[in-house]
Amino acid sequence: MQTNRRIFVSGLASVVSLASSTISFAADGKLIAILTPSHDNPFFKAEAVGAEARAKELGYETIVLVHDDDPNKQSELFDTAIARGASAIILDNAGADATVAAVQRAKDAGIPSFLIDREIKESGIAVSQIVSNNYQGAQLGAEEFVRIMGEEGNYVELVGREADTNAGIRSSGYHDIIDQYTDMVMVAQQSANWSQTEAFEKMESILQANPDIKGVICGNDTMAMGAWAALEGAGRTDVLVVGFDGSNDVRDSILAGGIKATVLQPAYRQAQVAVEQADQYIKTGSTGQKEKQLMDCVLINAENAAKLETFALVE
């Protein structure tokens, strides 16, 4: 077993090394494993927190594991969940193709998987694939982008991780709207891999090559924050930036007059729905739902940003 592998438990507060701890099985078989990318991204942290809270409300023990978008690490964490005798796995996966074998392995071991946020390329091996309606959300964001751009001007697109199907879906949704406006010209399109640091670096380079840009549309809020930081550093706060996710950081930027808009995908609630379906499946053998399920997104701008809290709208 690989040393220094870490398990994040109990609200992400306790970190226990598997190398120095005895793996124990849930006393009554009621254990839910929650696997997400790094909690450095608040979106993924919200998923983990939401799933863990709901699982505990329903009487389950939990293990919260982080795969860092590394398919090999994800595969090892599946082995951990299987070894622990998990009743179900809640997963935001590390790659649409690379995850198929791990989900199949869990299924073969009698452990159902419930996917959130990102789909995998195969149907029939996960019980549920619950994702935001990324295409619908991207169209909302693109419509707002077109509006604030005044339907004209040079712009940049920062795209997410190429192995992630959401990156392509969001980009398609953006362009199906924006490309209808011939006076809007995309002068650069680059992947920043969902990363704030990469977005900052890419934005600096793009801005040097294209000083006349009017707007930047991003595949997620983390990249939007990186792009905005680069623009601020260059004294270009006139450039209009739109993100996607509905993070508190972008909410605060919108309220401060920085980034102009984002698209909320309900990460916290989506994770809770997955746990609720896992609970029903464990108890009855069925979720009562089809495998692939979409949850609609909501446009967030200056008009409603104050109601946004941890990937949810509150009254």
Rank of each mutant, 00 (worst) to 15 (best):
T36P: 06
P37R: 04
H39F: 15
H39K: 14
H39C: 10
H39D: 12
P42M: 14
F43R: 11
F44H: 09
K45D: 09
V49I: 14
A51V: 05
R54P: 04
R54E: 12
A55Y: 00
E57A: 10
E57W: 03
G59Y: 06
T62F: 07
V64R: 00
V66S: 13
V66N: 11
V66W: 03
D70E: 05
D70R: 03
D70H: 01
D70G: 04
P71H: 09
Q74L: 04
Q74K: 05
S75A: 15
L77E: 08
L77V: 02
D79Y: 03
A83G: 14
A83D: 07
R84L: 14
R84G: 12
A86E: 05
A86C: 06
S87T: 12
S87E: 14
A88N: 13
I89C: 00
I90R: 03
A94I: 05
G95T: 02
G95F: 04
A98T: 01
V100Y: 02
A101T: 08
V103G: 02
Q104K: 13
R105T: 06
R105Q: 08
R105I: 00
A106L: 08
D108A: 15
A109E: 02
G110C: 04
G110F: 03
P112A: 11
P112D: 08
F114D: 11
I116V: 15
D117C: 08
D117S: 11
E119N: 09
K121D: 15
S123M: 09
V127Q: 02
V127T: 04
V127W: 00
S128H: 04
Q129P: 02
V131Y: 08
V131L: 11
N133L: 01
N133T: 01
N133I: 01
A138Q: 11
A138M: 10
L140Q: 15
L140I: 13
L140A: 14
G141N: 12
